[in-house]
Amino acid sequence: MRTASIKDVANHAGVAVGTVSNVLNYPERVASKTRERVQASIAELGFVRNDVARQLRAGHSRTIGLVVLDIGNPFFSSLARAAEDAAAEGGNAVVLGNSGHDAGRELHYIDLFEEQRVQGVLISPVKDITARLKALVARGTKVVLVDSPAQEGAFSSVSVDDISGGFMATKHLLDIGRRRIAFVAGPQEFHQVTDRLTGAMRAVAQVPGATLEVLQASDLTVLAGRGIGDALVARESLLPDGLFCANDLLALGVMQSLTMLNTLRIPEDVALVGYDDIDFAASAVVPLTSVRQPTTLIGRTAIELLTEQLESPEAGPRSVVFEPELVVRASTGA
């Protein structure tokens, strides 16, 4: 059965093809009775607009590309949901790409989104890809960095002050009397990890007698955190009395290891702090103290920054940096 065309709808409703086009794209320009007649014909014929053709004429689609580092991390899934909700309010849709911390896969999604003529690309980059993104912008696709500050104001960006977050997490451990602090780091090519470590170092430097050890995890996952916890349990040298993990998934993995083996108590032996304040943090076996990022605000602000660029192309890039918040729970004795 042949799919109904816009011409079929026009003939069925007794109007010009241009009138049908206006009903689809600018309904306010069409008289209400004519609009209703066209809409009735669309419903009766089962007409579905060809959005690919519309994109070719307009030069872009109603979609926005979003590339995140790890959709398995609840921080990014919550961020994506917030961006999706904000985009929907403007009649747009978000198409998600998960780089999985893979730079090659990230570039594949950028190429794919450009081919699809998306309105813009929101991206949490694996590493510095300024040159590739500048080329994207030069060809007409807007870019907003998410959870990452832009270098030298090259792009609009929305991020959180992770140095401040690392400082407040570590200072909290020091304030409750812990002096042998360890930072559980994920791969340090991610600026989020290095910034949080920088904040931790600044806090420790302010307290005489305090020390900071870096425990290198293989990834930013629960499984990698369990590996760190297992290593601590098996360790014969002096243990840290305060642990600050680069994200909540690592912290939950450490907690699983320590509580399952019943060797080290939280917080009596080791006080534990995570980062992101994902939903699982509050419901952990020992409710987790964490540094909260305003996930919903980050996602919605990314869409707002993209909309600004689309509506005012002459306006320069704008960066928004949010302050994190320490949420204290039982894992540090609250």
Rank of each mutant, 00 (worst) to 15 (best):
L173N: 13
A234F: 00
T194H: 10
K171W: 01
V270T: 02
G253W: 02
T221H: 04
F244I: 12
I278V: 15
Q206S: 14
V273G: 12
N247G: 09
L249R: 14
I181H: 12
Q216F: 00
D230F: 01
I266C: 08
R179I: 03
G177Y: 10
I228L: 08
T211Q: 14
K171D: 15
A185R: 01
G209V: 04
E189W: 08
A281R: 02
A224P: 08
M260E: 15
V214R: 03
L238D: 15
L220G: 10
R235G: 12
G242Q: 03
F190D: 12
V184N: 03
L215Q: 07
D277I: 00
G253C: 08
T194G: 05
R196S: 10
F167P: 01
C245R: 02
V270E: 08
M201A: 15
D248S: 10
T211I: 04
A182R: 02
F280I: 02
A210F: 05
L249W: 04
A169Y: 05
G166C: 11
A281P: 09
S218I: 06
V270Y: 02
V204G: 08
A282C: 10
L223P: 00
I228Y: 04
A282I: 10
R202A: 14
L197C: 09
D248C: 12
D276P: 11
G165Q: 14
T211C: 08
D195C: 11
G225I: 06
S257Q: 03
L197P: 08
A185V: 01
A281Y: 09
R180G: 11
A200K: 08
R265S: 14
E236G: 11
G253A: 10
P267I: 13
A182E: 02
I228H: 07
P187F: 06
T259K: 11
I181W: 06
G209T: 01
A210G: 09
G227M: 05
T198W: 00
L264G: 07
K171N: 15
E213G: 02
I278P: 07
N262Y: 01
R202Q: 15
M255H: 01
R196A: 14
A234W: 01
L223R: 12
A205C: 12
G229H: 07
R196W: 11
A169P: 09
Q216Y: 00
F190P: 02
F183V: 07
V233Q: 06
V184P: 04
